[in-house]
């Protein structure tokens, strides 16, 4: 085990998979000469060359679309969208082409494509550049949506995604790149579609993913000072959603708070709550609580933006409410 940042872990996963399989290549804006907008692919262009690390024009539909086409021929493209806010420009290809082809043509075609992108707010980038619309993409059967939080999961899930035969949207978070944690040495794969308990506790279940895992873990530490033990479950994959560890925990605690960075309406909280009603109704002892972003386009002003995004205190308060 070695301690690494999320950035290093993702970079390593990409590097190792490119070394392992010549069919893996990267395409996207500023992935090459620049070294990646968030420095994830720094050094790749010099090592792998321009054939395998392809700078594209600013043309998201073409990035994803060409990624799909290349995947159809048997290549294993990793298409990078600079941020998830630009994924809307490529929406047709992400939700209406990639997830449909295998099914619609009766299983003849497959799209082993990974779309890497970066989600999240909190950096004063204004309404168009600060969104956490992850859940939108999880609406579409045929597309898998992965959104890890820890360095180990980031590495293991990205490697699994690259080896997967299905299209995968791999969502990173802009404020997580510096997060440190232990990453197993050598071949490290984490299965897609498996939630994980990241902190054990018996009083309340906190369900979350991505950046809000850190916020929730910090909240759990705060609560522990008052003798409240929160169990924190990290979904890691939004589709297919693995409810098993969530339900297992909930059966024990009978109380749940769901924490996400994006907007509340029709969100991850709504989905998880509905599943608990459907699958664990008998265990509900308190109203289910959601912590999410204020329902406004994010403002530029620092104070206003922070007010809109869930904080440690928001999670602590929500937990106190359900106890």
């Amino acid at each position: 085990m070695a301690v690494k940042t999320v950035r290093e872990a993702i970079s390593e996963a990409l590097w190792e998979e490119m070394e392992r399989d010549e069919k893996v290549f990267i395409l996207g804006e500023e992935v090459g000469v620049w070294g990646g907008t968030y420095a994830v692919t720094k050094g790749f262009y010099d090592h792998f060359g321009e054939k395998r690390v392809r700078d594209t024009p600013i043309a998201e539909a073409a990035i994803v679309g060409a990624g799909i086409g290349a995947a159809l021929t048997g290549l294993r493209p990793v298409a990078e969208l600079m941020t998830i806010n630009f994924a809307f420009v490529a929406m047709d290809h992400i939700v209406n082409e990639a997830p449909k082809l295998h099914y619609m043509f009766g299983g003849q075609m497959s799209v082993p494509l990974v779309i890497r992108t970066v989600s999240g707010g909190g950096r004063q980038l204004g309404a168009t550049h600060s969104q956490t619309p992850d859940v939108i993409f999880a609406h579409f059967p045929g597309l898998k949506v992965v959104a890890p939080a820890t360095p180990a999961d980031s590495k293991g899930l990205l490697k699994s995604a690259i080896r997967s035969e299905d299209p995968i949207l791999f969502i990173e978070n802009v404020t997580l790149y510096q997060t440190r944690g232990e990453v197993p040495d050598g071949e490290h794969l984490v299965p897609i579609g498996k939630s994980k308990v990241q902190r054990q506790g018996s009083d309340v279940t906190v369900v979350t993913y991505s950046k809000m895992l850190n916020v929730s873990l910090n909240a759990a530490e705060e609560l522990a000072k008052d003798g409240i033990q929160a169990e924190v479950v990290d979904l890691r994959t939004l589709r297919p959603l693995d409810m098993e560890p969530v339900i297992e925990s909930f059966v024990k605690t009978n109380r749940v708070v769901i924490v996400e960075e994006g907007w509340r309406s029709y969100g991850v909280g709504a989905e998880v709550a509905a599943r608990l009603y459907e699958e664990a109704f008998d265990y509900i002892d308190a109203p289910i609580k959601r912590v999410a972003q204020a329902e406004v386009p994010l403002p530029y002003n620092r104070n206003l933006e922070q007010l809109a995004i869930p904080q440690v205190s928001s999670v602590v308060e929500a937990v106190q409410d359900v106890l």
Binding site: Q124, L125, G126, A127, T128, H129, P299, Y300, N301, L304
Partner: peptide, 10 residues
């Protein structure tokens, strides 16, 4: 110009 909601780009 945008009441502080837009920033440099807006």
């Amino acid at each position: 110009t945008s009441k502080g909601k837009g920033g440099s780009m807006h």
